[in-house]
């Protein structure tokens, strides 16, 4: 039981990371009609900002995270206004290539601005015997509670924002039909800008949550980004909450598979999860939550 609880909390923590990243991806997919491959890189870039402020300038973790959020918002605004919006006539695949170009630009900028060495970033609440709690034999750090709670709160706030405010309505109608919304006077420009800023902050937060496990370096978000994409197809691109559900399912099942399968199998836990996702998609091609759209002839 204690092991299960420990695994559950670890899954919730990684799941939150995946969920933040995938919510950003789906937001941009719905409003800008592109698969944002740079989601992870944007997070990495701003995690570097946080880590540099903390390690080199000596700020506290509670100050650098808001600072990184601010730079993330700025990054989102810049990307949308400079690259994505002018590329309106480029077409979906072209836009994806632009996000690829962004990855390469970010890979180029990071060593230039922050140096080539990875930078460590501590947890919000450092792990020590005094900052843990024991529930049913499982030892769980305060930091886990904090990150899980913060992610859920933030995502909850975004859902409430989307569901109940005028701006949220604007996001929803832009997501369902951009051209009609523009004709109806919805400020779609601001909507895409908000989406990119939100996605960038979520990506950054995801990167900051994972950073203590490794270090802040260029490749830190690679596998997380891939998992976030799978979360999106598993949950379906048609709703904003579907990918979040998908993210927790993926995190939970790969942690379970890694622990409970015999050692020869457990190294394959991610592959097993991927295969399961593919099998699932074969039978339900638009994810857990999603309806197939039929084109009229």
């Amino acid at each position: 039981m204690s092991v299960f609880l420990q695994l559950l909390f670890r899954s919730l923590e990684t799941g939150s990371v995946f969920a933040l990243a995938s919510l950003g991806i789906v937001l941009i997919y719905r409003t800008s009609k592109t698969t944002n491959f740079a989601q992870g890189s944007i997070g990495t870039l701003n995690a570097f900002v946080a880590a540099t402020l903390l390690m080199k300038w000596g700020w506290s973790i509670w100050a650098v995270v808001p600072a990184a959020m601010v730079t993330a918002i700025i990054t989102g605004f810049i990307i949308d206004t400079v690259f994505i919006r002018p590329a309106n006539k480029v077409g979906n695949i072209g836009k994806q290539i632009i996000t690829l170009g962004l990855i390469i630009v970010i890979i180029g900028i990071i060593p230039w601005l922050f140096g080539v060495e990875p930078i460590p970033l501590p947890q919000f609440i450092p792990y020590s015997p005094t900052t843990t709690i024991t529930i049913l034999g499982a030892t769980i750090g305060y930091n886990s509670f904090f990150t899980i709670g913060m992610s859920l709160l933030l995502m909850g706030a975004v859902f409430l924002f989307i569901q109940f405010t005028d701006w949220g309505l604007a996001i929803r109608v832009t997501a369902s039909n951009e051209i009609t919304s523009r004709l109806m006077g919805v400020p779609t420009k601001s909507v895409t800008m908000i989406s990119w800023a939100t996605a960038a902050t979520f990506g950054t937060l995801a990167a900051i949550i994972v950073a203590p496990q490794t270090q802040v370096d260029i490749n830190m978000m690679g596998s997380i980004q891939v998992s976030a994409f799978f979360a999106c197809v598993l949950g379906g691109f048609q709703t904003f909450y579907g990918p979040v559900i998908g993210a927790y399912i993926i995190a939970f099942s790969s942690n379970m598979a890694a622990y409970y399968l015999p050692p020869t199998w457990s190294v394959w836990s991610t592959v097993i999860v991927y295969v399961l996702i593919l099998v699932f998609l074969f039978f339900k091609p638009v994810g857990i939550i999603g309806k197939k759209l039929v084109r009229k002839v």
Binding site: F83, I97, G101, I104, V105, G108, I109, W112
Partner: peptide
Amino acid sequence: SVSGVAYLFSGILIIVVVMFYP
């Protein structure tokens, strides 16, 4: 001379080409 700048430029190259020659 500066690490990463080559990347920066090739990224910009890709973006510019896609924007102007979709």
